[in-house]
């Protein structure tokens, strides 16, 4: 991996002038993705599903993208990119082009976990060569913080508000990485913009795979989660250090945890700065934090055990 000074000299794939909130990490992630991509070797085409990033970077008559970029509806980023990829394959076969092109589909959690899931699952099953990036901001932030299946347990949103009777979202979040992994695709990973080197390595790896790949990236949302804008990267780092957002990758079924915090912090460190979890700290709600911690611990333990097993597809037959 090149030094940041080397990467900073590259032409940016995403330019300034987009209208994301100050302190939004959508653009941080995308800039890191473009910094990682080896744009001397190949070109990049992006399809973006509706979401915060799509509406703020493609406001007609402006676009913040320096690469071919297609706006798609909420549900079909994966289908659109498969269509583009298929067309490109045909062009290549007919000799209309000999360029090396890589395809990226970008969506947020609403367009991945819920609405776009069918299209994503289908595209992966058909085996198109593309990288699907989910910028997970834990709710439908574009329309004003509505609950999605990525919203964590206890999180207060406008459609799962906390009050006298309810305490926010009652269900735990969907484990999308395991679900995607169930398609037995070559590469799935989870990353965070706070660990840029890890994120860039993953993007590089994923773009070089011949087949569908998936990246799940945490995207702290300053307005929806309720923290001051300057803390965005810190919150992502806290999520990693508390193991709420473990950084790991699954290559052909074999899991590797890329970052194990030296000292695993209690989840309260992550919950405390965020307004959406403020009610968990009220008197009488201690059991909710315990439950949150239990869920995080269970998942982390499960990942550690899986890493220990180290089984890969195709090696269990002998």
């Amino acid at each position: 991996m090149a030094l940041l000074n080397e990467l900073a000299k590259k032409k940016e794939g995403l330019v300034s002038g987009h209208r994301l909130c100050p302190g939004c990490t959508h653009s941080v992630i995308t800039r890191q993705v473009f910094a990682a991509a080896d744009t001397d070797k190949y070109d990049i085409v992006v399809a973006a599903a509706t979401g915060c990033f799509e509406v703020s970077s493609g406001l007609y008559p402006y676009t913040s993208w320096n690469v071919p970029w297609i706006h798609t509806a909420f549900e079909n980023a994966a289908s659109t990119i498969s269509g583009v990829e298929a067309m490109y394959k045909v062009w290549k076969r007919k000799g209309k082009t000999n360029k090396d092109v890589r395809f990226i589909a970008l969506a947020s959690d609403g367009g991945t976990y819920d609405i776009g899931f069918q299209a994503l699952s289908g595209a992966i099953e058909r085996g198109h060569q593309f990288l699907y990036i989910c910028n997970d901001n834990n709710a439908y932030q574009n329309t004003g913080n509505q609950r999605s299946s990525a919203t964590p347990f206890g999180g207060s949103t406008t459609t799962s508000p906390n009050g006298k009777i309810k305490f926010g979202k009652e269900q735990p979040r969907k484990d999308i990485v395991s679900i995607i992994e169930g398609h037995h695709l070559p590469y799935v990973a989870q990353a965070s913009p706070s660990n840029w080197r890890d994120l860039m390595n993953k993007v590089k790896k994923a773009l070089d795979v011949n087949g569908p790949t998936y990246l799940n990236i945490i995207e702290p949302c300053t307005t929806g989660w309720g923290f001051p804008p300057h803390m965005a990267i810190d919150i992502a780092q806290l999520a990693v250090d508390t193991c709420v957002w473990p950084l790991y990758e699954v290559t052909n079924g074999k899991i590797v945890i890329n970052y194990k915090p030296k000292k695993k912090l209690p989840v309260t460190e992550y919950l405390k700065p965020q307004k959406r979890f403020a009610h968990l700290f009220k008197k009488g709600n201690e059991y909710l934090i315990e439950e949150f911690q239990r869920q995080v611990d269970n998942h982390w333990e499960w990942l550690l055990k899986r890493e220990e097993c180290g089984i890969e597809y195709g090696t269990t037959k002998e």
């Binding site: 940041l4 000299k9 990267i233």
Partner: peptide, 18 residues
């Protein structure tokens, strides 16, 4: 260059040496 890698608005100026 941490400011550059974490800037959401590509607002960190970079000279020809990066």
């Amino acid at each position: 260059m941490f400011c550059w890698v974490y800037c959401p608005d590509s607002a960190i100026k970079v000279d020809e040496n990066g």
